[in-house]
Amino acid sequence: MVPPLPPDAVGIGLKPRHAEALLDTPRATDFLELHAENHMSDGGPAGERLHALAERYPLSVHGVGLSLGGAERPDPAHLTRLAGLVETLDPALVSEHLAWSRLDGDYYNDLLPVPLTEESLALVARNIDIAQQALGRRMLIENPSLYVGLDINTLDEAEFLTELVARTGCGLLMDVNNAYISAHNLGRDLDTYLAALPWEAVGEFHLAGHSLDTAVDPPLRIDDHGSPVGEAVWALYRRLVTAAPDAPTLIEWDARVPTLERWLEEAGLARAQRLAARPTAARKTA
């Protein structure tokens, strides 16, 4: 019996090197998030381990390759594989990105930026509709980390996301690190951006570390998921977490992956920050 996802849960990403320890430790974390594309094998030991983990932990399936932000419809073969994975694992959450990565049969292994226009909005909404129908469930769409501002944008990102929620019924994955990075790199007013988001649709938070590339002028913040969460991102998380108090939080760590103990320690910090952000009366009854 898969345990339910507790309210305001805090989870960590799933890496092969930690799988055995997670199987040996009863409920080491509230939930595990896995990158869908790393678990689309036809068989073998990795799949068997994943199914064993699915019996012990609530899961979040996080896709990185559906290319919802492109002009092309989602690749039917890939969508079928994703739907199969979701059906097999029955995860608590399924999410993807406001980004594209596929064009004319080639796959570019990154989350590339989407021009925010009315035409793009219609195409991305269509793609989310197709994906949600194939999966038979609501998806969460993650706000991107951006390195270029596009002059051709006619909508701002908060407007675009708000309209996607309205048109498709999708939820939002608020990546706090991405919001911070994009505001810095694009010179975007973070408060204005955050105030315009539809917070009632936020179904998950992501937190991660990033780096600062000072070799370019002006310096760019790089979303490399290779370090602990920075203080500025923690501060932003404390501000935002009360706006979606029941949304689970994930600590991402995809480069220079730490020990399981260190990662769980970071998840503990998120739990503490979350508690500290709650109103005093709520903390007393917690």
Partner: peptide
């Protein structure tokens, strides 16, 4: 093209891929 964004940002995507 100018509408693709700043060169330094494009470099980040290029390097990531």
């Amino acid at each position: 093209d100018a509408d693709l964004g700043q060169a330094a940002g494009l470099d980040v995507y290029r390097n990531n891929v």
